[in-house]
Simulated scan of single mutants.
Amino acid sequence: MPSILMDVDTGIDDALALVYLLSRPEVRVEAITCTAGNVGARQVALNNLALLELCGRAGIEVAVGAEVPLEIPLVTTEETHGPQGIGYAELPLPKQEISSRHAVEVWVDAARSHPGEITGLITGPLTNFALALRAEPDLPKLLKGLVIMGGCFNYQGNTTPTAEWNVSVDPHAAAEVFAAYSGLPEENLPVVCALETTERIELRPEHLQRLAEAAGAEPELVLPEQPEGQRSRSGNPLVACLSDAIRFYMEFHRLYDQGFIAHMHDAFAAAAAIERTPYGTRPATVHVETAAPRLVGTTVADFRGIWKEPSNARIVTSNDPAKCFDELISSVGALAAAVGKRP
Rank of each mutant, 00 (worst) to 15 (best):
N48I: 00
L49A: 04
L49M: 07
L49N: 01
L51T: 00
L51V: 01
E53M: 00
E53Y: 00
C55I: 00
G56E: 04
A58W: 05
A58L: 06
A58N: 04
E61D: 13
V64D: 10
V64C: 14
G65Y: 14
G65Q: 11
A66S: 14
E67C: 08
V68D: 10
P69Q: 06
P69T: 14
L70H: 08
E71N: 10
I72Y: 10
L74M: 09
L74I: 11
L74F: 11
E79D: 15
E79A: 15
E79Q: 15
H81P: 01
H81Q: 08
G82W: 04
G82P: 01
P83C: 12
Q84E: 10
G85S: 09
I86E: 00
G87A: 09
Y88M: 07
A89K: 02
A89L: 11
P92A: 12
P92Q: 10
P94E: 14
K95M: 11
K95V: 15
Q96L: 05
Q96I: 04
E97Q: 15
I98T: 03
I98C: 03
I98Y: 05
S100E: 12
S100C: 06
S100T: 11
S100H: 08
H102P: 03
H102I: 09
A103K: 04
A103F: 09
V104A: 11
V104H: 06
V104D: 10
E105F: 09
E105V: 12
V106E: 09
W107M: 14
V108Q: 01
V108A: 02
D109L: 08
A110M: 08
A111N: 06
R112F: 09
S113V: 11
S113F: 12
S113P: 05
H114N: 15
P115V: 15
G116H: 10
G116L: 13
E117P: 06
I118D: 01
T119L: 12
T119A: 12
G120N: 13
G120I: 15
L121P: 04
I122A: 12
I122N: 13
G124V: 05
P125M: 13
P125V: 08
T127F: 10
N128Y: 07
N128S: 02
A130N: 01
A130M: 02
L131C: 06
L131K: 12
L131F: 07
A132H: 02
L133K: 03
L133C: 02
A135Q: 05
P137F: 10
P137V: 09
P137N: 05
D138G: 03
K141Y: 04
K141P: 00
L142I: 03
L142V: 05
L143F: 14
L143C: 05
G145Y: 11
G145S: 12
L146M: 13
L146C: 11
I148C: 05
I148Q: 03
M149H: 05
G150R: 00
G151H: 04
C152P: 03
N154G: 11
N154D: 13
Y155V: 06
Q156W: 07
Q156I: 12
Q156N: 06
P161H: 11
P161R: 13
T162Y: 14
T162E: 11
A163P: 04
E164C: 02
E164G: 01
E164I: 04
W165K: 09
